[in-house]
């Protein structure tokens, strides 16, 4: 692969029950590329958590996945409210999700920690009132 492969997705902020479609598609694409299953698992989970966060908190956004020889990169962008305190949001168990979200099994305060757990690199750029950009990478070797 000389050129990086790019997959672009629009994450629908209205449709909570079908959230995860982009992640499931990425999983399928990475399988077709023949990447190791553990790499695919890590990328899929990290991206799904990001996707869910965009639906819960930001009314949707976009996801781009770049596959290079060395890593898989996930870029998430939304125009949501932004994260007030990133350090606090990164703590396991911290959540601002509503009870109705929790009743669906989300909002356990594990989303961002899982994204960090499953990736080799993660950067959060968030501006209150403007939105959040997240870059994650999973190394292939």
């Amino acid at each position: 692969m000389a050129e990086a492969l790019n997959f672009h997705f629009i994450v629908d902020g209205e449709d909570f029950t079908s959230a995860g479609q982009a992640s499931v598609q990425v999983k399928k694409n990475l399988r077709q590329l023949g990447l190791p299953s553990e790499i695919i698992r890590r990328v899929s989970i990290a991206m799904y958590e990001g996707e869910i966060n965009m639906v819960i908190h930001a009314g949707g956004g976009t996801a781009d996945v770049n596959v290079t020889e060395d890593y898989v990169e996930i870029l998430l962008k939304d125009n949501g409210p932004g994260i007030k305190d990133v350090e606090q949001a990164m703590q396991e168990g911290f959540s601002t999700a509503t009870d109705s979200i929790r009743s669906l099994g989300f909002g356990a305060g594990m989303g961002l920690p899982n994204m960090k757990r499953y990736t080799d690199f993660m950067k959060i750029d968030s501006v209150l009132g403007k939105g959040t950009d997240i870059t994650m990478r999973v190394n292939i070797e």
């Binding site: 029950t17 079908s18 959230a19 995860g20 992640s23 499931v24 999983k27 299953s37 695919i40 698992r41 899929s44 989970i45 799904y48 669906l104 099994g105 989300f106």
Partner: peptide, 15 residues
């Protein structure tokens, strides 16, 4: 005991 549609995506992604 979770019974909503999201369990399918979670099982798929967590393999």
């Amino acid at each position: 005991i979770m019974s909503n549609q999201n369990i399918v995506a979670v099982a798929s992604l967590a393999d």
